[in-house]
């Protein structure tokens, strides 16, 4: 088990926030988000690359959001790794989505490397069963990495060992049982995971 806490950032994709703006001005939201919208993926979510992610009973496919996790060390958010933010697809942001986001094994992560000075143009590629299905650039972020770090630090202090996922794509793919996921980005060790039906070796 990973001893730290992983924090995810929702609604940090510019196209998503633009598309949902009319909805966000209506009930139950009533106003667009102001502060970073975070969620928690406890240490039990975190699994190493190559892990098998179990489909929960009654769920046909999982959301596969390839992203970058900032990793806090004793010297601050100085490391990064690729991560797959696995979720049960949901489109309601009103209440905390613990059942959808915080399940055991729902955060495969790759090896950590030193954080590059600039991540603003990093493109993250997702393959499913060897076919490229999604490309997403961190140039889409509402808050880029330095801004996100500053805005989160305004209300909480990540500790060494904690991670912060920088955001997830609006149009993330989904994958069902048996699918093999591979996530890559220039300069990062690639990350793989496999989806399995509940009870199938998971």
């Amino acid at each position: 088990m990973f001893a730290g806490t992983a924090y995810g950032t929702a609604l940090n994709d510019r196209r998503q926030v633009a598309a949902l703006d009319p909805a966000f001005r209506a009930a139950p939201y009533k106003a667009p988000p102001q502060a970073p919208v975070l969620y928690i993926k406890p240490g039990h979510c975190v699994v190493a690359g190559g892990a098998v992610v179990a489909l929960p009973a009654g769920c046909d496919a999982l959301g596969i959001a390839a992203t970058v996790a900032l990793q806090w060390t004793v010297t601050g958010p100085t490391a990064v790794r690729l991560a797959i933010d696995v979720s049960i697809p949901h489109d309601n942001f009103y209440r905390p989505a613990v059942a959808e986001l915080a399940r055991d094994g729902f955060l495969p992560v790759g090896a950590a490397i030193r954080r590059p000075a600039d991540l603003d143009a990093l493109e993250i590629v997702t393959e499913i069963d060897g076919e490229t299905v999604h490309r997403w650039s961190l140039s889409n972020l509402v808050r880029n990495v330095p801004t996100l770090i500053a805005d989160v630090a305004a209300f909480m202090t990540p500790m060494p060992g904690d991670m912060l996922l920088v955001g997830t794509a609006f149009d993330r793919p989904t994958a069902g049982a048996g699918r093999r996921i591979r996530v890559s980005a220039r300069g990062f060790p690639a990350l793989e995971a496999r989806i399995a039906a509940a009870g199938d070796g998971a």
């Binding site: 924090y7 929702a10 009533k30 502060a35 975070l38 209300f155």
Partner: peptide
């Protein structure tokens, strides 16, 4: 004051140091 209607109660309300 920090309540917003996204994943409410949001972390800015409930996860302060």
């Amino acid at each position: 004051e920090y309540l917003e209607n996204y994943y409410r109660p949001n972390l800015r309300v409930k996860n302060r140091d």
